[in-house]
Design a protein around this nucleic acid. Structure first.
Ligand SMILES: NC(=O)c1ccc[n+]([C@@H]2O[C@H](COP(=O)([O-])OP(=O)(O)OC[C@H]3O[C@@H](n4cnc5c(N)ncnc54)[C@H](O)[C@@H]3O)[C@@H](O)[C@H]2O)c1
Ligand SMILES: NC(=O)c1ccc[n+]([C@@H]2O[C@H](COP(=O)([O-])OP(=O)(O)OC[C@H]3O[C@@H](n4cnc5c(N)ncnc54)[C@H](O)[C@@H]3O)[C@@H](O)[C@H]2O)c1
Lengths: 233, 233
DNA sequence: CCGGGATCGTTCACGTGTTCACAAAGTCGC
DNA sequence: GCGACTTTGTGAACACGTGAACGATCCCGG
């Protein structure tokens, strides 16, 4: 109810806004004018009460008895997420992953144009990937100067990630998305997010393993021959 | 203290175990025999109390006054995470991202061998990427039969992701890692995790936007001309 | 054998996030 | 215009995760 509540959006809510936004954009494209929290929750894969509470943080944009105006929600949400203008992205590391990211159309399409890649491999510097110039890491300061506030995407080997991050940050970067499997230390004023494939796979492995253990012990007394995946100890 | 506590590991803890494990593996490689929770916390970028609490869920493997035995922790953690044997991975979608993943060495190296890719594009079916055969989606059931319990990695267009997931699941898959920007519905017995690049970027965008707003209003009264990034309303 | 120093394991208080439940507030049919 | 119905917005209870504090336990030197 207080002004404060509408300005301080909980972190968990922020993480869901992009999902809502994508869902709502789809709905808008299919000419849906209004949507209830119930239906939006279903489409976004969350609880309806959560949807209402999340949206309430943006302000009271719903109409009781009707639902939310899709287009208006999209507008407000885009605004809140800072998507009313583009955020230039620089990818560090023009390898396997970096190139895949540069080739990815859904990137620049949605307000995050890749303006440059940086690499230390001189055989790659000077080339272009999907139109994106590969420049030397040493030109980083120039690139930041050219484009202002950029988002840094790290796709270098793990060993180089901290160094590259440090250079990015001292060049003025305050948003970093790290793909390298390394724990990065950044100052308080820098926002860091990470995407770690190995971690995700290991988490899946954990739950699978536990399930296997559970069924193994459960079926052990029953005596059927199911536990096939518990070797190699 | 109870048996129960050692069997039920909190989700938040599970998500951190892979980070600890990676850190510990590095330490083991540099011939470090024991490590304190304080130091491990520093290396893993978390709180020391959290480290101790997390590790206590695995059992009491530390020695007061000394710390934890690195090698033994690595062993117990690998065991808990189910990394004592390989988990075969199948990648759906041999496009940009799928190929990058297949080319990624850090995948098979660490217990997650990519045994096949599946695609519907007949011009891709039959080829090999980094030694990994690209097979048709229709062969999915055969692949699962050949390799047993696999982990499915979805790198198809968003529109196809739910269909492919459904086919994977009905073929017996219980672990899915989704890279497509789509909300997937899966049965309760299936573990689903997602990696969503667009979401990550938009979260970064949010915080950056908010920071820009804050400094803009803060400096507005001071009257300098800094708020350059707030156009396109 | 004992005291000092280090470090773990656990308890406790707190903050954050989730979910239920329901009054408030709107629409729509008649 | 009014009453029935729908759906929001939010208060409150609950679950979960975090971090500080501290007793318990262990090593080590004398
Ligand atoms: N390829 C994948 O599918 C994948 C998946 C998950 C995580 N990752 C991680 O992403 C990172 C990149 O993976 P990759 O497969 O693209 O590796 P890669 O070896 O193909 O590419 C790395 C690139 O970084 C460049 N580089 C090295 N040091 C640099 C520096 N200091 N500054 C700038 N560039 C530098 C190299 O020249 C190379 O072009 C790795 O940390 C990897 O663990 C990759
Ligand atoms: N490329 C990236 O860097 C990147 C980054 C983030 C997210 N993503 C997401 O990952 C997914 C793949 O991206 P991409 O760039 O590799 O796209 P892509 O178009 O290059 O590749 C998609 C592949 O999926 C195949 N495919 C289509 N329908 C299929 C089906 N039903 N079953 C199996 N295969 C099918 C296509 O033949 C194609 O080979 C997309 O959802 C994209 O949004 C990609």
């Amino acid at each position: 109810m207080a002004e404060d509540d509408r300005r301080t959006i909980p972190e968990a809510t922020v993480a869901r806004l992009p999902i809502y936004l994508r869902t709502l954009a789809d709905l808008a494209a299919s000419d849906t004018a209004t949507i209830s929290s119930e239906r939006l929750a279903e489409l976004a894969g969350v609880n309806a009460a959560k949807v209402r509470k999340d949206l309430s943080h943006l302000g009271s944009y719903g109409t009781r008895g009707v639902g939310y105006d899709v287009e208006y929600l999209v507008y407000q949400m885009s605004r809140e997420l800072g998507l009313t203008h583009d955020w230039p992205v620089v990818i560090a590391g023009a390898g396997n992953l970096g190139q895949a990211l540069a080739n990815y159309a859904g990137f620049g399409n949605r307000g995050f144009p890749v303006v440059a890649m940086v690499d230390t491999d001189r055989s790659k510097v000077g080339s272009r990937i999907n139109g994106v110039p590969v420049r030397h890491l040493d030109e980083l300061e120039d690139i930041v100067a050219e484009h202002g506030d950029i988002i840094a995407v790290l796709a270098t080997p793990a060993g180089a990630a901290q160094d590259v991050a440090d250079r990015m940050i001292s060049a003025g970067v305050t948003s970093v998305l790290n793909f390298a499997p390394a724990v990065l230390n950044v100052p308080d004023h820098v926002w860091l997010r990470k995407v770690d494939l190995a971690v995700e796979l290991q988490i899946l492995s954990f739950y699978r393993q536990r399930h296997a253990d559970a069924t193994a012990t459960a079926t052990a007394s029953a005596g059927n021959g199911e536990p096939a995946a518990t070797g190699t100890g």
